[in-house]
Amino acid sequence: MKPTSRLGVFILVAPAVLIYCFAVILPFIGTIALSFLRWNGFGSPTWAGLGNYSRALSDSIFRSTFSHVAIYIVATLILEVLLGLALAGFISSLKHSAFYRIALFVPVMLPMVVIAVLWRAIFNSDYGILNAILASLGLTKFQHIWLGDTKTALFAICFVSGWVFSGFYMAIFTAALNRLPTDVIESARLDGSGEMSIFTKIKIPMIRQVTSVAILICITGGLQGFDLFYVLTDGGPYHTTEVPTTFMVKSVFRDGEFGYGSALSIIVSVAGLAMAYLFNLWQKRTRVDVEY
């Protein structure tokens, strides 16, 4: 339709555009610009060209953040998406499942910082409950300095993440499974297929679409993860749980390297977008072959 008046359109659209441009688009353009400068927050910036980018690529700590985040993403794909799918499969086959659906989703509701502070208390090696439980079971040899040991710190973070978000993916998959048409499933059942094979051979392929979105959320969300890492270890011990976001925040807000930090942020953002794009491409290409 044609608008009744120009002023009307302006009144409708302008507030959203203004706030959004002020707080997102302008700073985004500014961050790109800043990534080509060298600036310590004081005085006038100097031109760095691609200097910040080449430095980022040769920065061994920054490069290591990508392997840490890759481990985190793989672990959360298993502990969150895969586990969430399994839970949804079980739950949707039960009649009285309201309690489970509610209980499993509870952690999703809480601020990540609250969760991280709670789990820091659980993992604390001197007073924490985890080591106390192990002791009371006579398993003292499995006691660990969970967040201070390079072998366990990253895994501990993945574990907490799984504790929170398995319920989230369970909810997504449960909703998808409940929307499935019943006739196909009924006829398979009449053919004598077992519940397990109905789930893996019929239901999972039918919710393919949702699964790929879930995987995508898990990957892009993982790349942006900050709260848990910041509170539980802040990248320590000695940078072994450092992820791109914690490192970026340190570069800017501790070392005062605005240009360098901006370059890091652009690299991470581009990496995220590229992964999302590639994932979409791959998904489109393979869908044809699998479609029923």
């Binding site: 090696s125 001197d126 300095i145 969970w146 201070g148 040991d149 710190a153 270890t233 320590g236 011990p237």
Partner: peptide, 21 residues
Amino acid sequence: VNASANSITDNEGYSLFFQGK
């Protein structure tokens, strides 16, 4: 030195001392 040194905050470190651990 306490094995947990690198995983706890300064205050938690003080606390181990204050509690006689």
